[in-house]
Amino acid sequence: MKIETKNLNLWYGTFQALKEVNVAFQEKRITAIIGPSGCGKSTLLRVFNRMNDLIEGVRTSGEVFIDGVNIIDHAADLVSLRKQVGMVFQRPNPFPLSVYENIVFGQRIHGAMSKGALDEVVQQSLESVLLWDELKDRLNESAMGLSLEQKQRLCIARLIAVQPDIVLMDEPCSTLDPQATQRIEELMRELKKNYTIIIVTHNMQQAARVSDDAGFMLLGELVEFAKTEDVFTKPKDKRTEDYITGKYG
């Protein structure tokens, strides 16, 4: 198991956003977490790289193991955790720097490399997100001038450059058009060979298309977790069935 949670609870002040979540994610697969908005799926995702720490008044109980290490532990090293567990956000968020500087950002903060090595990282990362041909002559332009899809790809490239082994995706296609979405999904299938991917989405078709496993969340509870096929074709829980057949959501 790559990631495993045990009796995970999380409160924002007095509001309980996660309730006794027990789940295990397997290595080098795409796992989708689906559910209506406000069900806690993004919160769960943000537990894995401790991004919830940024919000004041957050309390967590239970255990979360990544490669056997409990990351909820206060002694956990956030810098190396976040290096290992990367995140792609809902809105593409490149830094207002050049394309090149965006990609080498991680290298620069995690210890300098030679110029040659950095150039290589830039090329490899851009190639792996299929942006190299488009951007190889625009490396010194500001990343803010790229299209939305290019920005999102660049954010994925920036992440790959620090060589994480888990990639968290928080509705990565929600601001993209259908064609761009399709291309990002293809990219995810490609990345699956080397990375463990967890994607949060409210788009059930997307979950069905790209994921190997799927979890359904409702009101902070993980209602069902199984192979994607099974969740969509023979859900065990009535609530899952109602959601995927569109009775609410």
């Binding site: 940024l54 810098v79 976040r82 995140m87 956000f89 830094f95 950002f105 991680g106 620090v162």
Partner: peptide
């Protein structure tokens, strides 16, 4: 934008 900050922290920046 807050997203710049989150992006940097999520990459492991202090």
């Amino acid at each position: 934008p807050r997203s710049h900050k989150e992006g940097a922290l999520a990459l492991g920046a202090t």
